[in-house]
Simulated scan of single mutants.
Amino acid sequence: MSEERPGILDGAVHPAEQTKLFGHGAAEDFLARSYRSGKGHHAILIEGPEGIGKATLAFRFANHVLHHPEPAEAPGTIADPSPASPITRQLASGASHSLLHLTRPFDEKTGKAKSAITVDEVRKAGKFLSQTSGTGNWRIVIIDPADDLNRNAANAILKILEEPPKRSLFLVLTHAPGKLLPTIRSRCLPLPLSPLSETDLAAALESLGAAPSGARAGEVLSAARGSVSEALKLVNYGGFDIVEAFRAIVSGPAEPPRRDVHKLADVLSARDSDTVFSFFCQHAGDFMTDAARAAALAGDIARADRLAHLSFQLGERIAIAQGYNLDRKQTIISVLDDIRATL
């Protein structure tokens, strides 16, 4: 079904269609118990790295609430969604009148997702929440992720969170909670999720029919850092080749061949290369973070500070390049040059 869902990786399924959850049983049980008590928070901030199952957990909990609209009558655990259930089918198809999945809108002109969740999208949430359900059911909004809200959209969401309608539930996903408005964080109950263990990651990939095999199976599980999406990028998108080329350039000779730099930049800036570009940006950021941590542990605080500062600068530069649609190839070359110079 991924072909019908823009932005879904090859080998993955949309979280609304996923019937299994791996590695987050404790968080799921907490949500079930909290809801059953009737004292659950109206806004849950589900925190954790990208690709570890935050959206899957959100949709499973939404499915649970909609199947059991009266908290006192709800079971104390969350069952796997039944594909035969009308509610499950509606959620999976995006046709539910009780749930709004607020994410970056799809731009039909470019064929890609827009760079941010705008205030116009948040207005849709306001209208959705203002509608009276004929069954008195819940209204659930999944913000996926809140990191993509631009400032105006974030302020608009804040106003809704400050005065939530009755029987409304907000499931706010974030890869980087520290970047959210403190006022948004303060109005949500934080629910941090950890990266998947290698055992849980292997099981998740197996359920998708994407379990790595051969000599690199262990390497995939290790390099993915507990993220299903990172594992799929390594297996299905040439992630290992990108990592090897990146390491050779930034850790190799003082003056690596410019053809190697341009070859990598060409791959990452080619048409329809959003997935590999995103993978490169994530890997480069992780690489710098690891380098800064290693320097700090070695007692070289000045070097650690330089590396951490550069990591922050690179993240901002990439965000600006994406937001303003700047030349991607030049951005990549600049990023590589700066990392090499600092290292």
Results as ranks from 00 to 15, higher is better:
Asp120Gln: 15
Asp120Gly: 12
Asp120Lys: 15
Glu121Asp: 13
Glu121Cys: 13
Arg123Lys: 15
Arg123Ile: 09
Arg123Glu: 10
Arg123Val: 06
Arg123Phe: 14
Lys124Val: 10
Lys124Ser: 12
Lys124His: 15
Ala125Glu: 05
Gly126Trp: 14
Lys127Glu: 15
Phe128Ser: 06
Phe128Arg: 08
Leu129Asp: 08
Leu129Ile: 09
Leu129Lys: 07
Leu129Ser: 09
Leu129Thr: 13
Ser130Pro: 06
Ser130Gln: 13
Thr132Trp: 09
Ser133Met: 07
Thr135Leu: 15
Asn137Ile: 01
Asn137Lys: 13
Trp138Asp: 06
Trp138Leu: 08
Trp138Glu: 08
Arg139Ala: 11
Arg139Ser: 12
Ile140Asp: 00
Val141Gln: 02
Val141Ile: 09
Val141Trp: 03
Ile143Glu: 00
Asp144Pro: 01
Pro145Phe: 00
Pro145Ser: 08
Pro145Gln: 06
Ala146Met: 00
Ala146Asn: 02
Asp147Ala: 03
Asp147Glu: 05
Asp147Arg: 02
Asp148Gly: 00
Asp148Pro: 00
Leu149Arg: 04
Asn150Lys: 10
Asn150Arg: 08
Arg151Phe: 14
Arg151His: 14
Asn152Val: 07
Asn152Leu: 07
Ala153Trp: 06
Ala154Thr: 03
Asn155Glu: 04
Ala156Trp: 03
Ile157Glu: 03
Ile157Val: 09
Leu158Asp: 01
Lys159Glu: 04
Lys159Phe: 05
Lys159Met: 04
Lys159His: 00
Lys159Val: 04
Ile160Phe: 04
Leu161Glu: 07
Leu161Pro: 08
Glu162Lys: 02
Glu162Thr: 01
Glu162Trp: 00
Pro164Ile: 08
Pro164Thr: 08
Pro164Asp: 07
Pro164Ser: 11
Pro164Gln: 08
Pro164Glu: 07
Pro165Arg: 13
Lys166His: 12
Arg167Ala: 11
Arg167Val: 05
Arg167Gln: 13
Arg167Tyr: 09
Arg167Gly: 07
Ser168Tyr: 13
Ser168Gly: 10
Ser168Leu: 08
Leu169His: 10
Leu169Trp: 06
Leu169Arg: 09
Leu169Asn: 10
Leu169Glu: 06
Phe170Glu: 00
Phe170Gln: 04
Leu171Asn: 03
Leu171Tyr: 02
Leu171Thr: 01
Val172Trp: 00
Val172Ile: 06
Leu173Gly: 03
Leu173Pro: 05
Leu173Tyr: 05
Leu173Met: 07
Thr174Ile: 06
Thr174Ser: 14
His175Ser: 10
Ala176Met: 10
Ala176Asn: 15
Gly178Ile: 02
Gly178Pro: 07
Gly178Gln: 09
Gly178Trp: 05
Lys179Ala: 14
Leu180Met: 12
Leu181Asp: 04
Leu181Val: 05
Leu181Pro: 07
Arg185Met: 00
Arg185Pro: 02
Ser186Gln: 04
Ser186Ile: 02
Ser186Leu: 01
Arg187Gly: 01
Arg187Trp: 04
Arg187Pro: 04
Arg187Met: 01
Cys188Arg: 01
Leu189Glu: 11
Leu189Gln: 15
Leu189Lys: 14
Leu189Gly: 01
Pro190Arg: 09
Pro192Ala: 07
Pro192Cys: 12
Leu193Cys: 11
Leu193Tyr: 12
Ser194Met: 14
Ser194Trp: 11
Ser194Val: 08
Ser194Thr: 14
Pro195Met: 11
Pro195Ile: 10
Ser197Cys: 08
Ser197Glu: 07
Ser197Val: 12
Ser197Leu: 11
Ser197Thr: 15
